[in-house]
């Protein structure tokens, strides 16, 4: 064994303790009944639990809506920030990223308070506004990065071949920024599906998300069902990653 591979040992221990073991525990708990016997009941229970199913649907819907809002707001912002003609200073870019430096919980609490003061009724509207505010930087940053590094000769070549500015954007800039868009979608969609704190604060628990149910189950010591729900969420996130991480051209059509 080479010496160099020894350097990996601390990371390996870390991975086993904090990633593999917890994952294994989730699987074990999810497949156990209250007395420690093996069962699929927890999983099948979810598919018959209309309450959980509808929350799940709402979660996915909110996540898709939030991702869409972030994409629609974030792409133009990233485009403007990365364009040297429109934005001459790096400070503006930092200002957009700045909210990421503040703890999400603090931001959410402050947002909720702001909505209260402004007299907004807490509900789906405030939930989406708050979420978009929370996750927008995660959409802007990867797209901004890709656009900033993009070789402008591609755009010039397209214009040279007769493409109008709109066609240049549609046929060259947009497809070439797909890697940024996919990682932006991943970074917004995944945490939105699993969040519970934001919906709790911003809707006064009026809207329950999938994360909320898991939290409630675990809080009320229903470890096995909670673990099963976590497992289901994990599978969904895994599938999203697979789809988005695959060929870029596939992203164009479906996922959003």
């Amino acid at each position: 064994m080479g010496k160099r591979s020894n350097w990996a040992i601390p990371y390996l221990i870390f991975l086993i303790l904090f990633v593999a073991l917890p994952l294994l525990l989730i699987v074990v708990y999810a497949l156990q009944d209250g007395n420690g016997g093996f069962t699929f009941d927890n999983i099948t229970r979810f598919f018959t639990d209309s309450d959980a199913l509808s929350t799940f649907a709402v979660s996915i819907e909110v996540a898709i809506e939030n991702t869409l809002i972030c994409l629609l707001l974030g792409y133009p912002a990233a485009y403007i920030l990365a364009n040297k003609n429109l934005n001459k200073s790096a400070v503006t870019a930092i200002l957009f990223i700045l909210p990421m430096w503040i703890n999400a919980l603090m931001r959410t609490l402050a947002t909720a308070e702001l909505f209260n003061v402004m007299g907004f009724t807490l509900g789906k509207g405030t939930l989406l506004m708050g979420m978009a505010y929370d996750y927008l930087p995660f959409m802007i940053y990867p797209i901004y990065n890709v656009l900033l590094k993009m070789d402008h000769s591609y755009e010039e070549a397209a214009a040279d071949l007769g493409a109008t500015p709109v066609q240049v954007f549609r046929k060259v800039t947009l497809p070439l920024s797909m890697p940024g868009i996919s990682s932006g979608i991943l970074m917004v969609f995944m945490p939105t599906v699993s969040t519970f704190a934001i919906s709790e604060f911003l809707t006064n628990n009026k809207i329950k998300l999938f994360g909320t149910i898991i939290q409630e189950n675990i809080n009320s010591s229903m470890w096995n069902y909670g673990a099963a729900l976590s497992l289901i969420m994990l599978v969904i996130i895994g599938l999203t990653t697979l789809v988005l991480g695959g060929e870029d051209s596939e992203v164009e059509g479906g996922t959003v």
Binding site: D151, S153, Y154, E156, A157, A158, A159, D160, L161, G162, A163, T164, P165, V172, P175, L176, M178, D248, S249
Partner: peptide
């Protein structure tokens, strides 16, 4: 008159072939 309307085409130094 913008480039896309001019009756000429360019071969770029680093080719600029569309990678996608």
């Amino acid at each position: 008159i913008p480039p896309h309307l001019r009756p000429l085409n360019t071969v770029f130094q680093r080719y600029a072939l569309f990678p996608h």
